[in-house]
Nucleic acid binder design. Structure first.
Length: 276
DNA sequence: ACACACCCCTGGAAGC
DNA sequence: TGCTTCCAGGGGTGTG
């Protein structure tokens, strides 16, 4: 599942591979992937456009064109971007093909088909897309200070897991993997009530979230299920997972079997001994 | 304010 | 073995 580190890895990959490249043709093989624009307009608006930069906000990706137009994408569960040579056959579930100069193509592939792509005339318009401007701060941003986090948690008497997954309340960019991992490293159970944490616990959670996200970006994300980088390589952070996807396996710290349960409609992993 | 159910979707895993 | 059902989950929406 692409969360902040995976999206950032994809962003870096695209910047390295298709910056300054020109779009010669656009094929939309699954019109439902487009949000707020029809395939014909999308194709004609992007013809001969040149990619100049790639931005990210939480899990949203922005492709900024030389003209100022902006492609906004959200990969949701299984979306991915791949750069391939023009003569390579398209993999299954390829929903969009951008033919580029120098005989390469950028593919949008998405098995589950939840991912969305939109086009806006400029960056400001793009930021208003789908409440992007309302997103809470990212874990590694200047805004996300310990004081901010303390005050944020104090406002909510809900359980930590759904609060940390919510992109609009305290922090953005986290998904199921990194919430479970951050809570494990902080030694805190996922169903604890946000405004009941001690100062020490808040600090541990704050540091854990930042470390997990930072380390994962450095590792190129986690390859779980469908996620692959734009160069086809696999992220290495999956090797560093302590609880996520480790149902019934022994805790890497204390050997207690990892519990898998459902919390707020999400599969949730924790160590009943290390987390309290 | 919070909890929860449901929807989108596909393919691999689990269950019978 | 082979069919059917379940499940993964980001995010939006709707209800209690």
């Amino acid at each position: 599942m692409p969360e902040l580190p995976e999206v950032e890895t994809i962003r870096r990959g695209l910047e390295a591979r298709i910056k300054s490249r020109k779009i010669l043709k656009v094929q939309v093989t699954r019109p439902r992937t487009l949000l707020g624009i029809d395939p014909k307009s999308f194709q004609s608006e992007l013809l001969n456009q040149v990619f100049t930069s790639f931005e990210r906000k939480a899990k949203y990706l922005f492709f900024i064109m030389q003209s100022g137009k902006v492609i906004v994408t959200h990969l949701r569960m299984s979306g991915s971007f791949r750069v391939q040579s023009l003569d390579t056959p398209n993999p299954s579930h390829t929903h969009m093909i951008f033919e580029l100069n120098r005989a390469e193509k950028l593919l949008f592939q998405d098995l589950r088909g939840f991912g969305k792509i939109s086009l806006y005339p400029n960056f400001d318009a793009a930021l208003n897309h789908a409440n992007v401007s309302r997103l809470a701060p990212e874990p590694l941003s200047d805004e996300f200070t310990l004081i901010y986090f303390q005050e944020g948690l104090a406002q909510y008497k809900t359980r930590l897991k759904p609060l940390l997954l919510d992109q609009y309340r305290v922090v953005s960019g986290l998904g199921n993997i990194y919430v479970d991992e951050s809570l494990f490293h902080a030694g805190i159970l996922p169903d604890r009530i946000a405004n009941k944490l001690s100062k020490t616990e808040i600090k541990r959670l704050y540091l854990s979230i930042r470390k997990v996200i930072k380390d994962s970006i450095e590792a190129g994300g986690s390859s779980i299920r469908n996620y692959v980088r734009s160069d086809g390589d696999l992220g290495k952070y999956a090797l560093n997972l302590f609880v996520y996807s480790r149902k019934r396996q022994n805790c890497r710290i204390c050997e207690t079997p990892i519990i898998y349960t459902r919390l707020a409609q999400r599969g949730t992993h924790y160590c009943p001994n290390c987390q309290v």
